[in-house]
Amino acid sequence: MNKKVVDLLLVSLGSLIAAIGFNTMLLENHIASGGLGGLAVSFQALFGWKPSFFVLIVNIPLLFICYVLLGRATFLKTVYGGTIYPIFIQLTSGLPNLTHTPLLAAVFGGIIVGFGLGLVFLGNSSTGGTGIITQVIHKYSPLPLGTSMVLIDGLVVAVGLAAFNADSVMYSIISLIVISYVVNIMMTGFNASKNLMIISRHHEKIKHYITISADRGVTEIPIHGGFTGKDRFMLMTTISTHEFPKIEKEILAIDETAFIVVMPASHVVGRGFSLTKHYQNEDEDILLPM
């Protein structure tokens, strides 16, 4: 199927799911979890403004700003999601509220909305809104993207103080955290990996174990000891999370003084991870294949 068609379907489905989560979980429980949707929750309580109408109207000047300041390519990626999302909010506005427990609404509403937004992002688009402001601030100021996001979403949640009580604001923060976590999982996947940096006097034995027994690739990096002044090799390998306990145990069995640095690898591309790996010792290896 054509990639543009797939992207269009992902954006449409994701926007629909996010709209359902918004109307059935967040809106009536007064959870303003960031973005234009969060502002819509607060402004409905303050002024009686219809959420779908508010999101659509505010998105129009924001999309114009996107075109002028972020360029035509970003605008084209954003315009469909920014238009279809408020339409789906209106179409699903008649759905019943599924829970009157704010904590459940914050958590499960965050999961549903986060899953929907994740699909939109996988479709190479966004729902516009405050995300456009975040990108503009990031592009035209020294602030990192993450800081810009926290700043804008923090202001949106803070507006909730004018409309609701402190409890609602705290539930909104919980929902915002859940949404961010779910979107991150959607973008990076569930199969987190680990990057190991190993320094050992027995690096040849450890390299042999990793390449032959563990059946993983390894890279030798020349290093110079700052304290000892000696030249050595550091081994670097990337493994799946479930492989780590076994490999760590075997490395320490070879050299109990081995220096091991473990770093998370949220996204790994290549054979054994994103590509099919042909295992050398598949019949005997007790490690689960990727």
Rank of each mutant, 00 (worst) to 15 (best):
S12W: 04
P245A: 10
G81E: 04
P96E: 14
M234K: 12
I210P: 01
G225L: 00
P222M: 02
I199Q: 14
G118V: 00
N29K: 10
G128R: 05
F121V: 03
V11C: 05
G226Y: 15
G118M: 05
V6Q: 15
I57R: 06
E220Q: 10
V6S: 11
H242P: 01
F88Y: 13
N281Q: 07
L63D: 00
L117Y: 02
G38P: 08
L104K: 04
S193K: 10
T83Y: 13
Y85Q: 00
S52D: 12
S213A: 08
K230R: 13
M236T: 11
G14A: 09
I87Q: 01
F244Y: 15
F22H: 01
S15A: 14
I84H: 05
L275W: 08
K205M: 10
G123L: 00
I239Y: 14
G71M: 10
A192F: 11
I198A: 10
D167Y: 12
S42I: 01
L145C: 07
H203I: 01
F64A: 15
I57K: 01
H202I: 00
G217S: 14
Y279M: 09
S175M: 02
L56A: 14
N59A: 07
N124D: 15
L103I: 13
P51H: 11
Q44K: 12
E243L: 00
A258V: 10
P222E: 08
G225K: 03
V159E: 08
G14L: 03
V157A: 13
L155H: 09
T101P: 01
F259W: 09
S148I: 05
S15P: 10
M263Y: 13
G118T: 04
I84N: 06
F190H: 12
V11N: 04
K205S: 12
M187G: 02
T188Y: 14
L288T: 14
T24W: 10
G270Y: 07
P222Q: 05
F227G: 00
G14K: 05
T101S: 14
S180F: 07
F43H: 03
I152C: 03
A158I: 12
L287E: 08
P142V: 04
I132C: 05
T78D: 11
P96G: 09
F47L: 14
I199W: 11
G21Q: 04
K4F: 13
I89P: 06
E284Y: 04
S200A: 12
S15C: 15
I223W: 08
I132Y: 12
A253C: 04
Q90L: 11
Y67W: 15
L39T: 03
E243G: 00
H224S: 11
M187R: 10
W49C: 03
A73L: 09
Q280A: 11
A258D: 07
T127W: 00
L196Y: 08
L39N: 01
V159N: 03
